[in-house]
Amino acid sequence: MFVLATSAVLLALLLAVIRAIRGPTVFDRVLAGNTVGTLAILLLASIGFLTGRPEFLDIGLTYGLLNLIGTFAVLKFFRHGDLAYDVDENQEGKAWK
């Protein structure tokens, strides 16, 4: 049963990587990267159970946190880099108080 879970995760990973390679925009790639991160947590968990070493889960948790930070870093870079600098920025200042 863990073999089933692991192979499903691997198949989904393959499709996500295909999306990351095909693009076409950078946001498609970031989205695919974020999905790969989620799938990596699941892969670590199910491989941990498959090989009888569930300690892998700690690595999975850490990986999830790093994945979140990585996604934000890339998004911030592309938001304030060349791509979107001259668009009106008024939305950020008006965030909920």
Partner: peptide, 13 residues
Amino acid sequence: ASHALAQAALHAG
């Protein structure tokens, strides 16, 4: 994360 992604994509036009 998905909210940030959607907003950044909209922002990039």
